[in-house]
């Protein structure tokens, strides 16, 4: 059974935000109005943490892309009252939008604040409405959503591999963020496959995970010489 994981090389990352845009388009994530954004209701499945250190003019800015960490021991699924969020055998943490009752307990329990909520009925500009991704179901108001590691892409890859009767190649299943990254800073693959690039990078001495001491065992691994 594969175990899908992501490696983000912060030394390569330029903080351009292309992953965020690619994610939004790929997953039909709603675009909230500026007033709503003011109220901290922006919806990103792939978010960007921006850390400012020091005083002007000597500011050091760190940008860290932050998807859902797809923990192996996810605090969010423990607390869900209705089985609306789950972890599958391949380690993907999913959300069932049509079952979610919107109690937002998973959001409160997530130490990474990776989840977002549909405060209003999601809206898109007319230009977007014609180019929705048909593979990703639209969400309704009042439910929680989050990064799925583009699980719909895995479906396609699996079908192709099944049709050709071969295992999934390394790098065949790529989420939109990894695919679009211009700096080639995001890697994605199977952690169980010892030959995969992700496995090799995860053993790098530069590798670390966010809040590892909480025991959530995130499957997003950062690489950085700093820190």
């Amino acid at each position: 059974m594969p175990k899908w994981a992501m490696v983000i090389d912060l030394d390569k990352c330029t903080g351009c935000g292309d992953c965020m845009a690619a994610c939004k388009v790929e997953n039909n994530v709603a675009i909230v109005s500026p007033e709503q954004a003011e109220e901290n209701r922006v919806m990103f499945w792939m978010d960007m943490m921006t850390i400012y250190e020091g005083e002007y003019p000597n500011i050091k800015v760190t940008r860290i892309p932050k998807p859902c960490y797809h923990c192996d021991n996810p605090p969010c699924i423990k607390v869900c009252p209705v089985h609306a969020t789950y972890i599958n055998p391949e380690g993907l943490v999913g959300q069932i939008y049509h079952r979610c009752i919107g109690c937002r307990y998973c959001m409160a329990a997530c130490p990474y604040t990776a989840k977002v909520f549909n405060w209003y009925e999601p809206e898109w500009a007319d230009e977007f409405k014609t180019c929705m991704n048909p593979d990703v179901s639209l969400r309704m108001k009042g439910v929680v959503e989050k990064c799925s590691f583009c699980a719909h892409r895995l479906q396609h890859v699996k079908e192709d591999a099944d049709a050709e009767d071969r295992p999934i190649n390394d790098g065949e299943y790529m989420p939109a963020c990894a695919e679009s990254c211009p700096a080639d800073a995001i890697f994605f693959g199977d952690l169980e496959n010892k030959e995969s690039k992700v496995y090799k990078l995860s053993r790098s001495p530069r590798a670390f995970k966010e809040l590892e001491d909480l025991g959530t065992e995130p499957k997003v691994i950062y690489l950085s010489k700093r820190e």
Partner: peptide, 24 residues
Amino acid sequence: PIIDLGRPDRVLNIFTAGRLQSPL
């Protein structure tokens, strides 16, 4: 807690698909 729900129409999911593991 029901007022707090985003989807109060689905509150009956607690009966059909509830998880006694959840503190709620």
